[in-house]
Amino acid sequence: SELMNSSKLIRMLEEDGWRLVRVTGSAHHFKHPKKPGLVTVPHPKKDLPIGTVKSIQKSAGL
């Protein structure tokens, strides 16, 4: 199965306009000026399962 580095996923979010608002432990929480909701990324993780990545991307509207 495909894995993604959390840094790469965070870069994709930031390029889309998401900004880090809070860190709780290894959970990084992002908000967007125009899009609704809060997106949480486990970080640092070298090997996020593709299912997790897809669900984060979906929440972020990517």
Rank of each mutant, 00 (worst) to 15 (best):
residue 6 S to K: 02
residue 59 S to M: 13
residue 27 A to C: 13
residue 44 P to W: 04
residue 36 P to N: 08
residue 51 G to H: 13
residue 52 T to P: 02
residue 58 K to F: 07
residue 6 S to L: 03
residue 42 P to E: 07
residue 8 K to N: 14
residue 31 K to Q: 12
residue 53 V to H: 02
residue 46 K to Q: 15
residue 27 A to H: 15
residue 24 T to N: 12
residue 62 L to W: 04
residue 18 W to G: 00
residue 46 K to W: 10
residue 37 G to Q: 06
residue 9 L to K: 01
residue 4 M to S: 10
residue 43 H to C: 03
residue 13 L to N: 00
residue 28 H to C: 05
residue 34 K to Q: 11
residue 32 H to P: 00
residue 30 F to H: 01
residue 8 K to L: 12
residue 15 E to N: 10
residue 58 K to H: 13
residue 18 W to P: 00
residue 17 G to Q: 04
residue 15 E to M: 12
residue 10 I to Y: 02
residue 16 D to W: 04
residue 39 V to D: 00
residue 51 G to A: 14
residue 51 G to N: 14
residue 36 P to H: 09
residue 55 S to W: 10
residue 12 M to L: 11
residue 31 K to Y: 08
residue 42 P to Y: 05
residue 19 R to F: 15
residue 5 N to V: 09
residue 62 L to G: 04
residue 41 V to I: 06
residue 38 L to M: 12
residue 34 K to I: 12
residue 54 K to Q: 11
residue 62 L to P: 02
residue 30 F to I: 00
residue 15 E to T: 09
residue 57 Q to A: 09
residue 40 T to G: 06
residue 59 S to F: 07
residue 20 L to K: 06
residue 10 I to Q: 02
residue 60 A to G: 04
residue 29 H to W: 15
residue 53 V to P: 01
residue 46 K to N: 15
residue 28 H to P: 01
residue 25 G to D: 14
residue 4 M to L: 08
residue 25 G to K: 14
residue 6 S to Q: 02
residue 24 T to R: 12
residue 21 V to A: 09
residue 31 K to V: 09
residue 7 S to E: 10
residue 2 E to V: 07
residue 39 V to F: 01
residue 42 P to N: 05
residue 43 H to G: 03
residue 36 P to W: 07
residue 43 H to T: 03
residue 45 K to F: 09
residue 59 S to Q: 15
residue 22 R to I: 08
residue 1 S to R: 05
residue 1 S to K: 07
residue 60 A to C: 03
residue 27 A to W: 13
residue 17 G to A: 03
residue 9 L to M: 09
residue 53 V to Q: 05
residue 42 P to S: 05
residue 28 H to W: 12
residue 19 R to I: 12
residue 6 S to T: 04
residue 48 L to K: 02
residue 31 K to S: 10
residue 35 K to T: 03
residue 40 T to W: 15
residue 49 P to W: 05
residue 20 L to Y: 03
residue 38 L to Q: 08
residue 44 P to M: 04
residue 44 P to N: 04
residue 21 V to E: 07
residue 27 A to E: 13
residue 15 E to V: 08
residue 50 I to V: 12
residue 39 V to N: 01
residue 31 K to P: 00
residue 32 H to G: 00
residue 31 K to E: 09
residue 31 K to I: 13
residue 26 S to L: 14
residue 20 L to S: 05
residue 39 V to M: 04
residue 4 M to D: 05
residue 20 L to A: 07
residue 54 K to Y: 05
residue 44 P to T: 05
residue 3 L to A: 13
residue 2 E to M: 10
residue 29 H to Q: 14
residue 25 G to Y: 14
residue 5 N to E: 13
residue 13 L to T: 00
residue 40 T to F: 10
residue 21 V to R: 05
residue 14 E to R: 11
residue 33 P to L: 08
residue 20 L to T: 06
residue 18 W to A: 00
residue 14 E to Y: 13
residue 2 E to W: 07
residue 38 L to Y: 12
residue 4 M to F: 11
residue 42 P to A: 05
residue 14 E to P: 00
residue 62 L to Q: 04
residue 21 V to L: 09
residue 1 S to W: 03
residue 24 T to K: 10
residue 47 D to N: 14
residue 54 K to W: 05
residue 56 I to M: 02
residue 5 N to H: 11
residue 17 G to V: 00
residue 2 E to K: 07
residue 35 K to L: 03
residue 16 D to Q: 05
residue 57 Q to P: 01
residue 47 D to R: 10
residue 16 D to V: 06
residue 30 F to P: 00
residue 5 N to M: 13
residue 14 E to I: 11
residue 27 A to N: 12
residue 27 A to R: 11
residue 51 G to I: 09
residue 36 P to Y: 09
residue 10 I to M: 06
residue 62 L to A: 04
residue 35 K to R: 06
residue 32 H to E: 00
residue 30 F to T: 00
residue 1 S to N: 14
residue 32 H to F: 01
residue 62 L to T: 04
residue 30 F to M: 06
residue 23 V to K: 13
residue 55 S to V: 07
residue 35 K to S: 03
residue 35 K to G: 02
residue 48 L to I: 12
residue 50 I to S: 12
residue 36 P to M: 08
residue 55 S to D: 13
residue 40 T to E: 11
residue 7 S to Y: 15
residue 36 P to E: 09
residue 17 G to P: 00
residue 35 K to A: 03
residue 15 E to I: 09
residue 48 L to A: 02
residue 9 L to Y: 02
residue 54 K to H: 08
residue 12 M to N: 05
residue 37 G to R: 06
residue 61 G to E: 05
residue 47 D to A: 14
residue 58 K to M: 12
residue 58 K to A: 13
residue 60 A to K: 01
residue 44 P to Y: 04
residue 15 E to G: 07
residue 10 I to F: 03
residue 29 H to S: 14
residue 26 S to C: 12
residue 4 M to P: 05
residue 53 V to N: 02
residue 34 K to N: 12
residue 23 V to N: 06
residue 51 G to M: 10
residue 7 S to F: 15
residue 14 E to D: 05
residue 41 V to K: 01
residue 16 D to L: 05
residue 60 A to S: 05
residue 45 K to R: 14
residue 19 R to D: 06
residue 34 K to R: 13
residue 37 G to L: 04
residue 45 K to I: 09
residue 58 K to L: 14
residue 28 H to V: 13
residue 21 V to G: 03
residue 46 K to C: 11
residue 11 R to G: 09
residue 43 H to E: 02
residue 26 S to G: 11
residue 33 P to A: 09
residue 30 F to K: 00
residue 6 S to A: 05
residue 58 K to S: 09
residue 61 G to K: 05
residue 11 R to M: 11
residue 58 K to Y: 07
residue 13 L to Q: 00
residue 41 V to Y: 01
residue 36 P to L: 08
residue 41 V to M: 03
residue 47 D to H: 15
residue 15 E to A: 11
residue 62 L to E: 03
residue 56 I to Q: 02
residue 51 G to R: 10
residue 44 P to I: 04
residue 61 G to Y: 03
residue 33 P to M: 08
residue 19 R to T: 11
residue 26 S to N: 13
residue 53 V to M: 04
residue 24 T to V: 12
residue 52 T to M: 15
residue 61 G to T: 03
residue 45 K to A: 07
residue 19 R to Q: 09
residue 8 K to Q: 14
residue 56 I to R: 01
residue 31 K to T: 13
residue 11 R to Q: 13
residue 4 M to G: 08
residue 17 G to W: 02
residue 26 S to H: 10
residue 33 P to T: 07
residue 32 H to N: 05
residue 36 P to I: 08
residue 8 K to W: 14
residue 59 S to V: 12
residue 42 P to G: 03
residue 35 K to H: 04
residue 2 E to R: 06
residue 5 N to W: 06
residue 55 S to R: 14
residue 48 L to C: 02
residue 3 L to I: 12
residue 57 Q to H: 07
residue 57 Q to I: 15
residue 55 S to H: 14
residue 7 S to W: 15
residue 13 L to R: 00
residue 34 K to A: 10
residue 49 P to L: 05
residue 36 P to G: 08
residue 19 R to M: 12
residue 57 Q to R: 10
residue 40 T to K: 12
residue 59 S to K: 15
residue 2 E to H: 11
residue 8 K to V: 15
residue 3 L to N: 13
residue 41 V to E: 00
residue 49 P to N: 08
residue 17 G to S: 04
residue 61 G to L: 04
residue 26 S to P: 07
residue 4 M to I: 08
residue 17 G to M: 03
residue 24 T to G: 10
residue 15 E to K: 11
residue 13 L to C: 02
residue 27 A to P: 01
residue 44 P to A: 04
residue 10 I to K: 02
residue 24 T to H: 11
residue 30 F to D: 00
residue 1 S to V: 13
residue 47 D to W: 13
residue 40 T to H: 10
residue 32 H to K: 02
residue 37 G to E: 05
residue 26 S to E: 14
residue 7 S to P: 04
residue 11 R to F: 08
residue 44 P to L: 04
residue 23 V to R: 14
residue 2 E to I: 08
residue 21 V to M: 09
residue 55 S to Y: 09
residue 10 I to A: 02
residue 21 V to Q: 07
residue 41 V to P: 00
residue 30 F to Q: 00
residue 50 I to N: 09
residue 3 L to H: 11
residue 23 V to P: 03
residue 53 V to A: 05
residue 25 G to F: 14
residue 41 V to F: 03
residue 9 L to H: 01
residue 42 P to T: 05
residue 31 K to N: 09
residue 55 S to P: 02
residue 24 T to Q: 10
residue 12 M to I: 12
residue 61 G to S: 05
residue 43 H to A: 03
residue 31 K to H: 08
residue 17 G to D: 04
residue 56 I to V: 07
residue 51 G to K: 13
residue 6 S to N: 02
residue 37 G to T: 05
residue 8 K to Y: 15
residue 16 D to N: 07
residue 3 L to Q: 13
residue 20 L to F: 04
residue 23 V to S: 08
residue 21 V to P: 00
residue 37 G to W: 05
residue 24 T to M: 09
residue 16 D to G: 06
residue 10 I to H: 02
residue 5 N to K: 06
residue 60 A to Q: 01
residue 39 V to S: 01
residue 43 H to S: 03
residue 2 E to F: 09
residue 28 H to M: 06
residue 35 K to Y: 03
residue 23 V to H: 06
residue 1 S to I: 13
residue 12 M to Q: 09
residue 2 E to N: 10
residue 40 T to Y: 13
residue 24 T to D: 13
residue 27 A to T: 10
residue 42 P to C: 05
residue 40 T to N: 06
residue 11 R to H: 11
residue 52 T to E: 08
residue 9 L to P: 00
residue 18 W to R: 00
residue 44 P to S: 06
residue 11 R to I: 09
residue 9 L to T: 02
residue 39 V to I: 11
residue 4 M to A: 08
residue 42 P to Q: 06
residue 42 P to L: 06
residue 50 I to W: 15
residue 38 L to T: 13
residue 53 V to C: 04
residue 6 S to I: 03
residue 57 Q to M: 15
residue 12 M to S: 06
residue 58 K to G: 06
residue 40 T to D: 05
residue 25 G to M: 14
residue 47 D to P: 06
residue 24 T to L: 10
residue 60 A to W: 01
residue 31 K to C: 10
residue 45 K to D: 08
residue 60 A to E: 02
residue 11 R to N: 10
residue 1 S to H: 13
residue 34 K to G: 07
residue 2 E to D: 12
residue 32 H to C: 02
residue 23 V to Y: 07
residue 60 A to H: 02
residue 53 V to Y: 04
residue 30 F to C: 01
residue 18 W to K: 00
